[in-house]
Computed example of a mutant assay.
Amino acid sequence: MVTCSFVQYQEISCIDYRAGTLLHVLPVHLMLTSQRKKAILDALERDGQVLAGELSATFCVSEDTVRRDLRELAAEGLLQRVHGGALPASPATAPFAQREDMESAAKRRIAKRAAQMIVPRQVVIVDGGTTSALLVRGLPADLEATVVTHSPSVAVALVEHPSVEVILIGGRLYKHSIVSVGAAAAEAISQIHADIYFMGVTGVHPTAGLTTGDFEEAAIKRALAARAAETVVLASAAKLNAASPYRIGEIGLAQSVIVEARTDAKLTEPIERAGVTVLRA
């Protein structure tokens, strides 16, 4: 337990009674906001989450001060606020063209591993996103299958494939991800029975679950997962232990997550503990 006590001249002492040691004695007027914010981001990177109450005790400031810090860091896109604290923010919410250049080598390996999971004559749902585009470009030329997608980019990438039938789900175009969303898309999706769904996300977190950056897009991803016998999440390292504003579902909504082979075990072990299979590419 960490406690704080105010002494004269607004000096604060923080004592960790578990270790019986004085953590620091620092005049309040010398505690720079920038230093506190850096410490918050360091804690996020180290622990995967921060709690406002614990930060308040650690820094010997009010929870209102901590919440202000978190608001400002969230406004800069440096973290994702959640009830009681914050999680790392996913960088995968950048515009589509910008995301194409992010972790491109890792995405190619993940896409190749996903393509190997497809069995001839399956009905396969392929989400939108940069990794999904790489997936369909890598399908064997002799593969016979049906690909269902709400991504015009994915559909166009399969135009020249000789034996893949393409079903393109229509609706309102969400330009950020170049996918169809809305009621028309949801209605069409409800008529599908697929063998496997390759889902793109912007965040995979053991407690926050699977998340993305748009409310309607999250709803469409839930609908697609409900129509597939198996859901496989494609997740480059930047998406692991990160969160975005809109929840698709619990992490257990997916049966498997494909990550790059060199992904740190500390990022994948919580996923496996949640009962989800981690496949390394």
Rank of each mutant, 00 (worst) to 15 (best):
V2A: 08
V2W: 13
C4N: 10
V7P: 01
Q8H: 09
Q8V: 15
Y9Q: 05
Q10V: 04
I12P: 01
C14F: 06
I15Q: 03
Y17T: 13
Y17I: 07
A19F: 03
G20K: 00
T21M: 06
T21C: 08
L23N: 03
L23M: 13
V25W: 03
L26D: 06
L26M: 13
P27K: 00
P27H: 00
V28A: 09
Q35Y: 08
R36E: 09
I40Y: 01
I40E: 00
A43T: 05
L44S: 02
E45Q: 11
E45Y: 05
D47P: 09
G48N: 04
L51C: 04
A52L: 02
L55W: 03
S56V: 11
T58D: 07
T58W: 10
F59G: 03
F59K: 01
F59H: 04
E63F: 03
T65G: 02
T65K: 01
V66K: 00
V66S: 03
R67N: 15
R67W: 12
R68N: 13
D69S: 03
L70V: 05
L70R: 00
E76R: 06
L78M: 05
L78F: 04
L79P: 05
L79F: 10
Q80Y: 02
R81N: 08
V82N: 05
A86R: 06
P88K: 00
S90Q: 03
P91W: 06
A92M: 13
A94K: 01
P95C: 03
Q98M: 15
E100S: 12
M102L: 08
E103L: 12
K107C: 08
R109M: 11
R109N: 09
A111W: 07
K112H: 10
A114V: 04
A115Y: 13
Q116P: 07
Q116G: 14
V119T: 09
Q122M: 14
V123F: 08
I125E: 00
V126Q: 01
V126T: 04
D127I: 00
S132I: 02
S132L: 06
A133T: 06
R137L: 12
L139Y: 08
A141W: 12
A141G: 02
D142I: 11
E144H: 14
E144G: 05
E144V: 15
V148N: 00
S151F: 05
S153G: 14
A155H: 12
E165G: 09
L168I: 02
G170M: 09
G170F: 08
L173Q: 06
L173K: 00
I178V: 15
S180D: 06
A183S: 13
A183K: 11
A188V: 11
I189N: 04
S190F: 11
I192Q: 07
A194G: 09
A194C: 12
I196V: 15
H205L: 12
P206D: 14
A208F: 12
A208C: 10
G209D: 04
G209I: 06
T212L: 13
G213V: 02
D214T: 08
F215R: 10
A219H: 07
I220Q: 10
R227K: 08
A228K: 00
A229R: 09
V232R: 00
L234H: 06
A235F: 09
A238S: 14
K239H: 06
S244F: 01
S244E: 11
E250D: 15
L253S: 02
A254Q: 07
V259I: 07
E260G: 05
T263K: 01
D264G: 01
D264Q: 07
L267N: 03
L267M: 12
P270M: 05
I271Q: 00
R273L: 15
G275E: 14
